[in-house]
Computed example of a mutant assay.
Amino acid sequence: MNNPGFIEAFIDYVSKNYMRILTATGEHIYISLIALAITLVTCIPLGIYLTRNEKIAPYVISIANVFQTIPSLALLGFLIFVFGIGNDNAICALVMYAMLPVLQNTYTGIKNVDKATVQAAKGMGMTNFQILMKVQIPLALPVIISGVRVASVWIIGTAALAAAIGGGGLGRLIFSGLSLIRDEIIFAGALPATALALLTDMVLKKFQKYTTPEERAKRIAKKMKVNFNH
């Protein structure tokens, strides 16, 4: 792919098919966002629930772990019998793959919140719900976001396989390039997918840092200093 012929072919393909690439990128983002949204709405509350019901936690996390061991194409093929071909199949498979890091990190993050801090909150008269929302989740947020980062990258990368079962996204370009044995088409699909994964990881990494106790303490100190000066 380092030869001038490939570069010329790639530029020529992109210039003639940029609308197709943009459409495929939009489809890829749509599939990934839907899968990530379902994962977060499902796994974060479930992770919180498991911290209150620890006896079943190992079993639920083990089930989520099992999905990681199933080959992607095999899972997509099996789900055809449930959802048929198309994006619904792909989204369901992506959710199954993304469950583990979000579920496990939510559970671990909340469980690792300092017990003395929780007890102090109880001593102040906070209810369990208030402790969860104002103490445990804010302190566990960096760990939870770490799981979301992993899940997001997995979803964006695996979403390319949606094309194998009739779904949309950048996988269509990749599979088209493979069938035609044309590197420039493969690269036209792989490059945006890689860029999306890297950009998403970079944004979530910065947000993760923003939510750490150290950064929050710096913001509070800065705010107090400004107020004092005024």
Rank of each mutant, 00 (worst) to 15 (best):
M1T: 10
N3T: 10
N3S: 13
F6M: 09
E8C: 05
F10Q: 01
I11V: 06
D12N: 14
Y13P: 01
S15L: 13
N17F: 07
N17L: 08
N17E: 10
M19I: 13
R20H: 12
L22I: 11
L22H: 07
T23V: 13
A24I: 09
T25Y: 08
G26V: 03
I31R: 09
I31Q: 12
L33P: 03
A35D: 06
A35S: 15
L36Y: 04
A37I: 09
I38F: 12
V41A: 14
V41P: 11
C43P: 07
C43F: 06
I44G: 04
L46F: 07
I48N: 06
I48G: 07
Y49I: 13
E54D: 15
I63A: 12
I63R: 09
I63Y: 10
A64C: 03
F67R: 02
F67T: 09
Q68S: 00
T69E: 08
I70V: 12
P71N: 04
L75V: 02
L76P: 02
F78R: 11
L79E: 01
L79T: 01
L79P: 00
F81M: 13
V82C: 10
G84R: 02
G86P: 12
N87L: 04
N87K: 04
D88N: 14
D88W: 02
D88P: 04
I91R: 00
L94H: 06
M96N: 04
P101R: 08
P101S: 08
V102K: 07
V102M: 08
Q104S: 14
Y107H: 11
T108D: 05
T108G: 05
G109A: 03
I110V: 13
D114F: 06
A116V: 07
A116G: 14
A121C: 12
M124E: 15
M124A: 15
F129V: 10
Q130M: 13
L132N: 11
M133C: 09
M133P: 01
V135D: 00
L139W: 03
A140R: 02
L141M: 10
L141Q: 02
I144M: 07
I144A: 00
I145T: 08
I145L: 14
I145S: 08
G147C: 06
G147T: 01
R149Q: 15
R149G: 09
R149M: 12
S152L: 04
I155A: 01
I156C: 06
A159G: 12
L161F: 04
A164D: 03
A164I: 12
G166T: 01
G167H: 00
G167I: 02
G168M: 00
G168S: 05
G168N: 01
G168K: 00
G169C: 08
G169Q: 04
G169H: 02
G171R: 01
R172I: 15
L173T: 03
F175K: 10
F175Q: 11
I181K: 13
D183P: 03
A190Q: 03
P192Q: 05
P192W: 06
T194E: 10
T194Q: 12
A195L: 13
A197T: 05
T200V: 15
D201I: 06
M202F: 14
V203D: 05
L204A: 07
L204N: 08
K205F: 03
K206G: 06
K206R: 11
F207S: 00
Y210S: 08
Y210P: 03
T211D: 10
T211S: 14
T211L: 12
E214N: 05
A217I: 06
K218S: 09
R219V: 07
K222N: 12
K223A: 15
N227P: 02
N229S: 11
H230M: 06
